[in-house]
Structures are given as structure tokens and as C-alpha cells.
């Protein structure tokens, strides 16, 4: 039986990455009440981009974030404007947008599969196999760097939301869309920007994914299911929730995987989702009602 601390450490490192991946998803929901089922697919596309940048141009995955994040920001602006914003006045907005994002995910998966076939990829960077040995614990360098990057990106996100004017407007819109409108926030524009940011976060996460995990076109379903579980457990729209849930559940999953079997690495999240829905549907940090 491996050292419990070892397992916990690995869980935390992984959880940080999950939290970053889910942050864009929960933010998009918080601002415009859209469940973006294509979020996982965005990440996979970004992973492919980062993979080829590394393989063909030698650009380190961490550096590739400087490319993927802005590129996906723009892509997000376009996707929202062309697709989702058209549904704003529709009476069945919630369903329609979910289905729309579902279609988008399928389209992206299909395109990736057609273009790159189903071969599993993973960037082979030097630090993905090396570790630091501290006593009886070894810390994989790649995952540690990834975790630090996630903290950094979370920090940037926090700064943006709390120190800039558009960030302020986004937070306001997340808390009460009607109120934001009434104080003069252009909620359409803010929603577009928020979607772009969500997509940018997916892009950055994809860069990290390219060396942390193996990926292939159909992998996004596993990811989106995991991330959806995270955002529900954390509380839809809550960034703090996603952080706590991400790390918490990842640690639990790590232990479950070690004690029981590898299938628990995903099953933990799905079960947590069901338990939360039964016991506390609004999640850890979700609000049951608003003023």
C-alpha cells in the first residue's frame, strides 16, 4: 500500500488541473446560464494545437499557452456571436443552448477524427517522466509544473474579475443579470467576453493536457462528464466551488483508485454528482436563491 501522503499529493496536483479546466465552464454558466458541452472538445482541440506546436516547432506546452489562450479567446467570441447569441430570446433557452453545444462538440470531434484519426497522442516532454524525490514521496515534475501554472492562471482570473472594470461587470452579471442591466452593464457584450474567457481557459487547459494526459478525438466526453460533475458539486457558477471540489474530489478519487480499482478515477466524480443532487442540489457554494 503506497504512502497515503503520496496519494494525497498526486490528488492535489491533479485536482488543480481539473479545477482550471472546469473554471471556464462554471464561469460561462454563471454569466449566461449556458451549459457548454463543447468545453471538453475545446480543450482537446487546444491539446492537438499544443501537441503539434511542440512536435513540429519545439514550442514547450507551457509556452504554447501564450498562443492557445488568446486564439481560443477569439474563437470563443466568434462562436458565441455566431451561435449562442442567436438563442438569447428563445423560450427554451436552457435546453436549446445545451443541445447546440452538444452539436458543436460532435462537429469538433468529427472534424478532429477525420483530420487526425483516432490515434492517441501525448506530448513527450522531458519533465513528464522525471520526478523530485523528497523522502519517500516523489513528485512528478510535469504535474507539479502544471499545478503551478493552474494556480497562476487562477490568480490571473481572480485579478481580472476583481480588479478590472469588465471583470467587475462579469461578476455583477453572474450575481444578478437583471441588476447588472439596470446599472448600465451591456450584458450582451459582457456575455460575449465571458464566453471568450471561458474558451481561453479551455485553451490553456488544453495546452497542459497535451503533455499531462493522452488524448484522442473522442476523449472529450470523459472530460466533459468529469467537469460537469465538478461544477455541479462545487455549485454552478462558483469559481471557489470548482477549486474546492476539484481538489477535494481528485484526492478522494486518488485514494479510491489506489484502494479499489482504476475505474474509480472517473466513477468517484459521477457518484459525487449524484450524491450532491440528492443531498444538496445547489452544490457546495451554490446559492439556493437570490434577492
Amino acid at each position: 500500500m503506497t504512502n497515503a501522503i503520496q496519494i494525497a499529493v498526486l490528488g492535489v496536483l491533479l485536482g488543480g488541473v481539473y479545477a482550471l479546466m472546469a473554471s471556464g465552464l462554471t464561469m460561462i454558466y454563471g454569466v449566461m446560464q449556458i451549459i457548454n458541452l463543447a468545453h471538453g472538445a475545446f480543450m482537446i482541440v487546444a491539446a492537438y494545437v499544443a501537441f503539434f506546436l511542440y512536435r513540429d516547432s519545439g514550442i514547450d506546452p507551457f509556452l504554447s499557452i501564450l498562443i492557445t489562450a488568446p486564439a481560443f479567446f477569439v474563437a470563443g467570441l466568434i462562436v458565441y456571436t455566431l451561435l449562442f447569441s442567436r438563442l438569447v430570446d428563445s423560450p427554451r433557452f436552457g435546453e436549446m443552448t445545451v443541445l447546440l453545444s452538444f452539436g458543436l462538440a460532435l462537429a469538433l470531434e468529427g472534424s478532429l477524427g477525420a483530420g487526425f484519426s483516432g490515434i492517441y497522442h501525448r506530448s513527450d516532454v522531458s519533465y513528464s517522466t522525471s520526478t523530485w524525490d523528497i523522502g519517500s514521496i516523489f513528485i512528478p515534475k510535469g504535474q507539479a509544473y502544471g499545478f503551478v501554472a493552474c494556480l497562476g492562471l487562477f490568480g490571473l482570473l481572480w485579478a481580472f474579475l476583481n480588479l478590472t472594470r469588465p471583470g467587475y461587470a462579469i461578476r455583477a452579471t453572474m450575481q444578478n443579470r437583471g441588476a447588472a442591466q439596470v446599472v448600465g452593464v451591456n450584458v450582451t457584450r459582457i456575455s460575449t467576453i465571458a464566453f471568450g474567457i471561458g474558451a481561453a481557459l479551455a485553451g490553456a487547459a488544453g495546452s497542459l493536457m497535451s503533455f499531462l494526459f493522452t488524448f484522442h478525438p473522442a476523449a472529450h466526453w470523459q472530460w466533459i462528464a468529469l467537469l460537469l460533475s465538478l461544477i455541479v458539486v462545487g455549485g454552478l457558477g462558483s469559481l471557489a466551488g470548482v477549486f474546492v471540489a476539484g481538489i477535494g474530489l481528485a484526492v478522494v478519487a486518488a485514494f479510491a483508485t489506489d484502494w479499489l480499482s482504476p475505474t474509480w478515477s472517473y466513477l468517484t466524480f459521477y457518484l459525487a454528482l449524484f450524491i450532491v443532487l440528492l443531498v444538496r442540489p445547489q452544490g457546495l457554494f451554490g446559492k439556493a436563491a437570490t434577492i
Binding site: 447546440l100 452538444f102 460532435l106 462537429a107 469538433l108 470531434e109 468529427g110
Partner: peptide, 21 residues
């Protein structure tokens, strides 16, 4: 029987939702 079918399914779904709900 390739992935293109999947892509087309996705595009069809999006199209239906946007233009023929």
C-alpha cells in the same frame, strides 16, 4: 463509416436548433 458522419451530425443538430427549432 468515418468520423465525418459525426461531424455532419453535429452540424445538422446545430443547424436544426438555430434555423428550424
Amino acid at each position: 463509416n468515418s468520423e465525418i458522419n459525426l461531424a455532419i451530425t453535429g452540424v445538422l443538430l446545430m443547424g436544426a436548433l438555430l434555423f428550424f427549432p
